[in-house]
Design a protein around this nucleic acid. Structure first.
Lengths: 348, 348
DNA sequence: CATCGCTACTGAACCGGTTAAGTAGTACCA
DNA sequence: TGGTACTACTTAACCGGTTCAGTAGCGATG
């Protein structure tokens, strides 16, 4: 159907093998012949068949990404589009493509990895949203395929990790709030099954201890808006209310802020709020959200690069540390004023 | 390396050919032998090599999607994650995968399509964000590959389209506002290079005409937050201000609302605002955004289904019409009160 | 009993590349 | 002058499936 390497060989008056050597810049052909072959290939419009290449070289020339998300929540997270765009900036410079699978059903995640790996559709996979004691680590080992993880799993993982430390972002948030006079600083955490849920909680605890404050106002939520609302309600209905809440992501912070406002709290006068991620929409909230600006695009770019290096044997096996994200101060955090005069307290 | 069809043949005591027939449910093997082969395959853990299948059957078993977005804006649009999740629900039932390319640079879009198609990495492509006189239509025709478009392009397109009419959503918004007593209803449109930018504008015009009102307050923006703000500023600084603004998407509406508020307008007392898409975060704005609830997931599901039918020759070539999205009324729209008393007017 | 037709297979070519092994041709050197 | 070494190729096997052309075996048929 399309023009093949044999057509090029015929056009240049050489054998298939010579064409292959010439096209791949391998020794074994004279410069003169190489040029003739290259010309012929260009002239007759030859494009390498990735299928044939895949079969004969036993490589897929593709990386896999399996995104496990509840369909309802899939669009709320600004992380993935940027992250994928970052992966693409690396792939654009290589002959790799990205094969994406979205697992919306429980159990579909493992099927997704098997679908990609068993048939040989990808040469390596990128693991995001690493969980505590993540079952994907043994799975990927069983499937015998190279991988990179985003942050280092808490169980032994043989795969290189590309890490963005979230300790500093959370610490900065807490220090910022302490500086504003807050001493009752709560944390609405993400799922503690996720390692970033855990590390952010630990960072919050450490920062409070550092400041000589008790880290006792913690509620575990699930990174979703609904979870953020429920956690916020619980915190604000308690006798010993926080004057500031550090959320583990922007979705929860946004929903929590809206809930607090609808309950009569003024932000930041009655309650300061900070998020994490710096999702684009957070600057359009009223007030705009103080949050931590991560860089998913760089993360994707580097993760893809590390994985490709791994595939080509040029990675040193070391983890890569990305620079820490920065706190972005906006209107949702302010000086601590209120003590016990907040709306829900009086209505109780 | 891995277990091949020859291993299965040996284990079952038949030829490679017989195994292929048996595994594909083709005639030419007795039921007894078929079972024996299937058993053997399962026993020795055979998995079809997608690479070999691809080469011999000249099919990639993959669909392609090229997303062209500015990297800064890539994460703001809640459409793609849901849309892709929808595609996946269809693909999960077939032996197809999705190959995704993100084109962040101008010119990278065409390169993206060529990368996917030339090497035979995909069997068909899905075209989103169709533009006026879209250059991708002739490109895809030149590349000779099946495709589906989201909505029907305004130039002749030989490809089936999966359409979600946005007329009704915009009409409902305008009627809702007219019902609230508004007569100066502006439209901040998306780029008029995009067909959905155009159709939403036309729907707004038609609805105003229907109500006997003049459709003269139109500003073309670009679907981005910055564009929404600029357009809003222009509208609100004019002598003959609108009392309501219908935005072509949620991003612009959100940014516009935040700008109007920071300029002293109360929403909805001084200005009513409606968006389009029903992005998740819109319900957490203050006030929550009145918007039009689309269903990107269904759109993705059906688009993938149509494309696969096309590839398998079972599509009738007709466009598919999805049901129209519905208006979701929230707090950002309210009765028309203000006439000339709004902040920017007095400050002028 | 030879022939036909059918089922149930086998064998080999093929998809389009890569690559190991083999072979001309030339240059160099003792 | 013959042997070695090297370059510049060619040939053919191979990757793991699909598929077409044969063919063996068997029952039915005239």
């Amino acid at each position: 159907m399309a023009v093949t390497i044999s057509d090029v060989a015929r056009a240049a008056g050489v054998s298939k093998g010579a064409v292959s050597y010439a096209l791949n810049g391998r020794p074994g052909v004279s410069d003169e012949t190489r040029l003739r072959i290259l010309d012929a290939a260009k002239q007759i419009g030859w494009k390498p068949s990735y299928r044939a290449k895949s079969l004969s070289s036993s490589r897929a020339y593709a990386l896999g990404l399996v995104v496990a998300r509840n369909p309802k929540l899939i669009s709320t997270d600004p992380f993935f589009p940027s992250f994928i765009a970052g992966i693409e900036t690396t792939l654009a410079e290589h002959e790799y493509t990205l094969v994406l699978t979205v697992a919306t059903q429980p159990g579909a995640e493992e099927r997704g990895y098997r679908k990609l790996v068993d048939g040989g559709r990808v040469d390596g996979v990128i693991l995001t949203d690493v969980r505590h004691d993540d079952s994907r680590i043994p799975l990927i080992q069983e499937l015998k395929i190279p991988a990179v993880t985003l942050n280092r799993p808490d169980t032994g993982s043989p795969f290189p990790a590309v890490c963005m430390d979230d300790t500093e972002g959370i610490s900065s948030s807490v220090e910022h709030l302490v500086g504003l006079g807050h001493s009752r600083i709560a944390h609405v955490g993400g799922s503690q099954h996720m390692i970033h849920g855990r590390s952010r909680r630990r960072a919050w605890e450490a920062a409070l201890n550092e400041a000589g404050l008790k880290a006792d106002l913690f509620i575990e939520a699930d990174f979703t808006a609904a979870g953020g609302i429920a956690a916020t309600e619980k915190l604000l209905r308690a006798g010993d209310k926080p004057t500031a809440i550090v959320y583990a992501n922007d979705i929860m912070a946004t929903a929590g802020q809206a809930f607090a406002q609808s309950s009569g709290f003024r932000i930041p006068e009655d309650l300061s709020i900070s998020g994490y991620d710096d999702a684009d929409f957070t600057q359009y909230l009223n007030p705009a959200l103080t949050t931590v600006s991560t860089d998913p695009m760089t993360w994707g770019r580097i993760a893809a690069q590390v994985l490709i290096n791994e595939l080509e044997g040029t990675h040193d096996g070391m983890d890569v540390m990305l620079s820490s994200p920065n706190l972005v101060v906006r209107g949702s955090t302010g000086p601590c004023k209120a003590v016990g005069t907040a709306p829900l307290a009086t209505s109780k």
